[in-house]
């Protein structure tokens, strides 16, 4: 039987695809609500902050254009830089703690069954409490007289007399960090858990047959395959910690000796205590740039090296 003749050689011209303009506009209509939201709650405030940062902007009175003066002043502002150093220190502690604990929790609640579902919920529960209420609870627990930790440590004979854990930097810092881990680990657990569940069990079984121990499977199968959700968790944890404010404001009030003032705390003080709104805006813009750079670096570090080939 003769094969079907091939006509591809004899085609001279292909008619141009018809344009469908109306469709283009309908598409825009569908994304319009999202665009409006992004504009109203992100782009416009961002533009206003940048605009304000070029002014001396008091709460009452007329703003005055001062160009880059705010940024020049920021360069020599040691209180800002020490706040930044403290924030980075806190970010490292909180991120390592959060992701480490979240990983362990996610591995623990991976299976199925009623008890596991209960634990999953229990670990997630603190996430839905507000940061302010959690901080208030912790401030009370940490109170030297009326709280739990100090009297308990004394009653158990771990300390001689009452020790005020909020009075010195190290215990105060770790107390807040542990509170944050307690409150937020469940959130990162869910992200990592979803990554773990997306790994087909076949891979683990194939690796078991290949003779890989639990540790080898974790290192060579699990870790590489949850890189994407892990990158998400890392970026959220770093950004969240860099923006820390409530817990240090409520529990420690920036103390002891102003050692726990974070960058956002400084911005808050400049803008709403000293009412230097223009300078506060300049600090916000710098923080935004720092966060942007950090996120890009993290994405680059966690990129899939094989994807480019």
């Amino acid at each position: 039987m003769p094969a079907q003749t091939d006509i591809s050689d004899s085609i001279l011209e292909v008619p141009p695809p018809r344009r469908r303009r109306r469709r283009d506009w309908t598409g825009l209509l569908y994304v319009a609500p999202a665009l409006v939201l992004v504009a109203v709650f992100f782009l416009i405030p961002l533009g206003m902050s940048i605009w304000m940062s070029f002014h001396a902007w008091p709460l009452i009175g007329v703003p005055r254009w001062i160009g880059l003066d705010n940024y020049a002043r920021l360069w020599g502002d040691t209180s800002f830089w020490s706040a930044l150093v403290f924030t980075i220190q806190y970010t490292i502690a909180a991120t390592v703690g959060l992701l480490g604990v979240a990983f362990v929790l996610a591995l623990m609640v991976q299976g199925e069954g009623r008890a596991i579902a209960f634990y999953r919920t229990a670990y997630f529960l603190p996430v839905v409490t507000g940061f302010a209420s959690a901080s208030l609870l912790w401030a009370w627990l940490s109170n030297v007289d009326a709280g739990l930790f100090s009297p308990l440590a004394q009653d158990l004979g771990m300390t001689d007399g009452r020790v005020n854990i909020l009075a010195t930097f190290t215990p105060a810092f770790w107390s807040v960090t542990i509170m944050v881990i307690w409150k937020m680990a469940g959130f990162y657990m869910v992200i990592i858990m979803s990554g773990l569940q997306a790994i087909p069990t076949d891979y683990q079984e194939a690796a078991r047959i290949d003779g890989a121990s639990w540790g080898q499977r974790f290192r060579w199968i699990t870790l590489p395959l949850i890189r994407r959700p892990f990158a998400l968790a890392l970026i959220l944890a770093v950004a969240g910690s860099m923006l820390a404010f409530d817990q240090f404001y409520i529990i420690l009030n920036g103390g002891p000796q102003n050692q726990t003032v974070t960058v956002v705390y400084r911005i808050f003080n400049e803008s709403f205590v000293s009412f230097r709104l223009g300078y506060g805006a300049a600090l916000s813009v710098v923080l935004l740039v720092i966060l942007l750079v950090l996120s890009v670096v993290q994405l680059w570090l966690l990129r899939d090296k094989g994807d480019q080939s």
Partner: peptide
């Protein structure tokens, strides 16, 4: 033993 899975189960990375 060695096993060939229905899904192949090749490590994608």
């Amino acid at each position: 033993i060695a096993m060939v899975f229905q899904s192949y189960a090749l490590y994608p990375h």
